[in-house]
Nucleic acid binder design. Structure first.
Length: 425
RNA sequence: GUGAGUAUGGCGAAGUGGUUAACGCACCGGAUUGUGGUUCCGGCAUUCGUGGGUUCGAUUCCCACUACUCACCCCA
């Protein structure tokens, strides 16, 4: 156990970490284009925040939280999602005091006590944005747009935005009643899961894979949520769609789409890839800020996971541009060159070149081999002869051309990307 | 939470109830003098997840445990 990571966690090792950095950079750059600013909130919060914000009845709160009592006797929880903490920060710091729309983005670890499987971890990393303030459907469209835009910039293909509206406190309860009315009498014909869903979240029955349940739904003529929207929600949804069309953001309607968190109102969407589960999604949450104790403030946001994006990217055969390789490998040919080699090494770095050397006492041949393995562009060979002459033998590992140059000229040659004096020695 | 599968060297992967556990990759060393990427030669698991049991004898059979993987639920 001592040398084993906790279940559902991962070590992101060199090589992989380059992909993470590249992806995070895309997120930061893209968010800047849409004028989102970063917010960093604690990795843990008071348990009550998630219980109230995310919803007591959700799977996340009822059985997936990493909750513990700290030494002061307070119940705290490792955040299972990002929105609640951001909203809490918005309220606590009174960001609503500013007349502007508040547009925030975040990247960070989230925690859920689940059984790990493909694309599912106990510690995973989400990136997401929140727009706080506007009720305007253009805000919904913008968040959907950046959600899809980011995934495309990562290099993912075959993306589909599935769009729905889950209504508001006016029309959702009404719809729920209609469903209960029709389904309760035939509840015994539903599968076990759906009988539970009937009481907890009847909307989900539409999502059941069981054919019989779907048949029952059709027989009793259960209305979809889209058919039951109130006028305000209907108008809002139509406008969101109009904006998406104007922005060339493709989507498909999915009137069976439900999201796992209680706080969603009106617009809800998910981005999917064939053969995978959701790679991200979001929605509007008009009641959340007030629920958490702030002034009535509409909001809309989305979240996606780095793990899943990388997984899909890899399986689709894509990859993010790899980090730049080493510029110079310094090979130490003999004892007399040790000190000058360190001098050279540090000088190269101070000039902005990525440089390294062997520390295992390997022979020159092995050092060249290492240089090759490290994919260094150049190898600077330094031995007693060079030290005596104040020079360095510089070899271009791509062409094999090498030449002896003054020690001070190494930076110049490497920076310029070539050796002019091509006399092979 | 429910169900299924798998656990052999750094990685991938054969294998058998019985004296020395294939192979590939990676790694290390060598093929005369201070030089890489190719080639050739050599090296690299007293040990087969952990603990029990069956047996004259188990890595191979049985049980338990642990871990991992996958599906369901749900989600990112």
């Amino acid at each position: 156990m001592l040398t084993q990571r906790p279940r559902g966690t991962a070590d992101i090792l060199p090589g992989e970490s380059g992909q993470w950095q590249a992806m995070e950079q895309i997120i930061r750059d893209t968010c800047a284009l849409y004028h989102f600013e970063e917010v960093r909130t604690p990795v843990f919060e008071h348990t009550e925040l998630f219980a109230r914000g995310v919803g007591e009845t959700t799977d996340i709160v009822s059985k997936e939280m990493y909750t513990f009592t700290d030494r002061g006797g307070r119940s705290v929880t490792l955040r299972p999602e990002g929105t609640a903490g951001v909203v809490r920060a918005f309220v606590e710091n009174k960001l609503y005091g500013q007349p502007h729309t508040v547009k925030l983005y975040y990247i960070g670890p989230m925690f859920r006590y689940e059984k790990p499987q493909r694309g599912r971890w106990r510690q995973f990393h989400q990136y997401g944005v929140e727009v706080l303030g506007p009720e305007h459907p253009a805000a919904d469209a913008e968040v959907i747009a950046i959600n899809l835009d980011l995934l495309r910039r990562f290099g993912l293909r075959d993306l589909t935005v599935e769009l729905n509206s889950v209504g508001c406190p006016v029309c959702r309860p009404r719809h729920r009643e209609q469903m209960l009315e029709r389904l309760r009498p035939v509840a015994d014909r539903l599968c076990g899961d759906c009988q539970q869903r009937l009481e907890r979240n009847p909307l989900r029955i539409f999502d059941c894979k069981n054919d019989r349940c779907q048949q029952v739904l059709a027989e009793v003529g259960a209305p979809t949520i889209l058919e039951s929207l109130c006028d305000d929600c209907r108008r809002h949804f139509e406008q969101v769609r109009a904006f998406l069309d104007a922005m060339d953001v493709p989507y498909v309607l999915n009137d069976r789409l439900v999201r796992g968190l209680d706080y969603y109102t009106r617009t809800a969407w998910e981005v999917t890839v064939p053969g995978f589960s959701s790679v991200g999604g979001g929605g509007r949450y008009n009641g959340l800020v007030a629920e958490v104790g702030g002034p009535e403030t509409p909001g809309v946001g989305f979240a996606g996971s780095i793990e899943r994006a990388l997984m899909v990217l890899r399986e689709q055969g894509g990859a993010l541009p790899q980090a730049a390789r080493l510029d110079v490998w310094v090979a130490v040919a003999d004892e007399a060159a040790e000190v000058p080699a360190m001098r050279l090494l540090q000088r190269l770095r101070s000039e902005g070149l990525r440089a390294d050397r062997d520390y295992l006492g390997k022979g020159l041949k092995a050092q060249l081999k290492s240089a090759d393995r490290m994919q260094a562009a150049y190898c600077a060979i330094l031995g007693a002869d060079e030290v005596a002459r104040g020079t360095v033998t510089l070899k271009d590992l791509r062409t094999g051309v090498q030449t002896e140059v003054p020690a001070e000229a190494v930076v110049h040659h490497v920076s310029k990307g070539g050796i002019e004096d091509g006399s092979t020695t």
